[in-house]
Design a protein around this nucleic acid. Structure first.
Length: 513
RNA sequence: GCGGGAAUAGCUCAGUUGGCAGAGCAUCAGCUUCCCAAGCUGAGGGUCGCGGGUUCGAAUCCCGUUUCCCGCUCCA
């Protein structure tokens, strides 16, 4: 594990040193859990997004793209359940340092009282035999009545406190009930604090009249509220999907592990609308399709695994994650969820608008079921770097750091390097560079020795280096060096563009899906 | 949010008992150089994370704070 911690550290410092990722606002000491993508990072990130977009939108005749706003009507989040589900009151025990959800502590306490009552009833049933009148026992037995009264009082008090968002009262209930920490056994509790996972801001120039709105915690709701717009204007027939990439924001309690869990992050989501009853078939279909998309990158298949959810979210009927072997262990990279008709039904309820599809085959309307695929772009970025980062020991004992990024994703596709900075080699190099740079992100460099320049390109994952030497001037050929093998072959200058096109082609990768 | 550790040049780090702010690499300029971080010459680059305190004197000792890493916790 220590070695893996080292790997994460190495990736973090490599990212900074080679212009992939910088800490946000670094000159002001940074901002916790926020990062900026540098000149190479933005290229890699764009390429990953492009791979996803083309694989989802372009390669599927029944999926369309969408780009919705980060701001949405506040009722959106009422309907989706985010406003209620993401307001967890938390409390810490000062002795054990354990954190609990305050509402869960109280609910557990209530169910314990409930258990006591049931035990009492069960004991009585045994004692009285067939003559036992349970209803009468429950309404007369003093111990049962006392516990029931206590339970009802706490429930009422608790419900009122939660309703009014009265956190001090919630804490008082915990103290009054004498609830102890299961670990330390002590009643030494901190205040109850609210952790709202949605960021809010205010719309309206006059603050008193402004309305609180949220920064979206997921892009999915933008798709749901536009479901009919796309269906109608695109004349889409079920089953069909809507795909979107974009920023989402979550006020994580603990955001850590570099770009794995950030407060501001980018999602790539696709919501697939299906006929009710067919959702499990499509769920399996997308599980398989999405795993194929990952495997096509060419990293070891052992880096990926499915994790099926047993405990399901409030909206889901089936859910799994595609997990990736990050330096800190297998963690969620992508989620595939069968979301039922939960979201569309709730938007119907809150908006009062019908969000139904008329199925000409059945000659009836229904609210479609939804199968979602949702992947974190930043997590995908980290996954690729984790799998691609390699330190090699060379034959002469020198070290080489190379990013073994799939060529079509690399920030720079080809570096054009005159072997020497004289004898018209730079001019010839510039000529080749200019002929390539409109088709591919290329890099031209004439400084430093050739070995140093090769290593710099290895470190940012450039798959090909084109080197111009004196023979180039004589017979118009150059050498092309491959990143992973460091092998070179000599090719005519007029073949360079075609060879690069072919070797970094995304179309060839998409054809494998 | 709690506990532990760390923070010195762009990077990796050294800095003795509290006594002049250092090295290697990188960067820039020049020379040299026909293929894997080569060599030579020169230059630039620092509020020692930040704020207090102790002291004649603090990178060094003490307190606070910020950020990062690890563990706990949380995770639609």
């Amino acid at each position: 594990m220590a070695g893996n911690d080292d790997l994460l550290k190495k990736i973090i410092s490599h990212c900074k040193e080679y212009g992939f990722i910088f800490p946000s606002s670094e000159i002001y000491d940074g901002l916790s859990a926020v990062y900026d993508y540098g000149q190479n990072g933005v290229e890699l990130k764009n390429n990953i997004r492009n791979y996803w977009w083309k694989a989802m939108v372009q390669a599927n005749e029944n999926i369309r793209g969408l780009d919705t706003a980060i701001f949405m009507h506040p009722l959106t989040w009422k309907a989706s359940g985010h406003t209620d589900a993401f307001n967890d009151p938390l409390i810490d025990n000062k002795d054990s340092k354990k954190r609990y959800r305050a509402d869960v502590l109280i609910e557990d306490h209530l169910s314990k009282i409930g258990e006591k009552i049931e035990k009492e009833v069960a004991k009585a049933r045994e004692r009285f035999g067939p003559a036992f009148n349970e209803a009468q026992f429950r309404s007369t037995n003093p111990r049962v009545l006392e516990n029931q009264k206590k339970k009802d009082e706490i429930s009422t008090q608790f419900a009122a406190a939660m309703e009014q968002n009265n956190l001090a009262e919630v804490r008082q209930i915990i103290l009054d009930c004498g609830i102890v920490c299961p670990v330390s056994g002590s009643r030494n509790w901190t205040d109850v604090r609210q952790f709202n996972l949605m960021f809010s801001t205010r719309v309206g120039s006059v603050s008193e009249e402004a309305e609180t709105i949220y920064l979206r915690p997921e892009t999915a709701q933008g798709i749901f509220v536009n479901f009919l717009n796309v269906q109608k204007t695109g004349r889409m027939k079920i089953p069909f999907g809507i795909a979107q990439t974009g920023k989402a924001f979550r006020n994580e309690i603990v955001a850590r592990q570099f770009i794995f869990r950030m407060r501001e992050f980018e999602q790539m989501e696709m919501q697939f609308f299906v006929k009710p009853g067919t959702e499990m078939d499509w769920y399996s279909h997308w599980k398989e399709k999405r795993m194929k998309w990952h495997h096509t990158l060419g990293f070891p298949a052992a880096n990926y695994r499915f994790h099926d959810h047993i405990k399901l979210a409030h909206y889901a009927s089936a859910a799994c994650d595609i997990e990736f072997s990050f330096p800190f262990g297998f963690k969620e990279l992508e989620g595939i969820h069968s979301r039922t008709d939960f979201d569309l039904k709730n938007h119907e309820k809150f908006s009062g608008k019908k969000l139904q599809y008329f199925d000409p085959e059945l000659n009836e309307s229904y609210v479609p079921y939804v199968v979602e695929t949702s992947i974190g772009l930043d997590r995908m970025f980290l996954a690729i770097l984790s799998a691609a980062y390699r330190e090699e020991q060379m034959e002469d004992n020198a070290a080489r750091v190379v990013l073994n990024i799939p060529p079509f994703l690399s920030p720079v596709k080809a570096a054009i390097l005159p072997l020497l900075n004289k004898d018209r080699l730079p001019e010839k190099g510039m000529e080749i560079y200019r002929s390539l740079r409109l088709s591919h992100n290329c890099y031209y460099e004439e400084k430093d020795t050739i070995g140093r320049r090769y290593r710099r390109q290895d470190a940012i994952g450039t798959p090909y280096c084109i080197t111009i030497d004196h023979q180039t001037l004589a017979d118009d050929t150059v050498t092309i060096r491959e990143r992973d093998t460091m092998k070179q072959e000599r090719i005519p200058v007029n073949k360079v563009a075609g060879i690069i096109d072919e070797r970094v082609s995304i179309e060839k990768v998409l054809a494998l899906l």
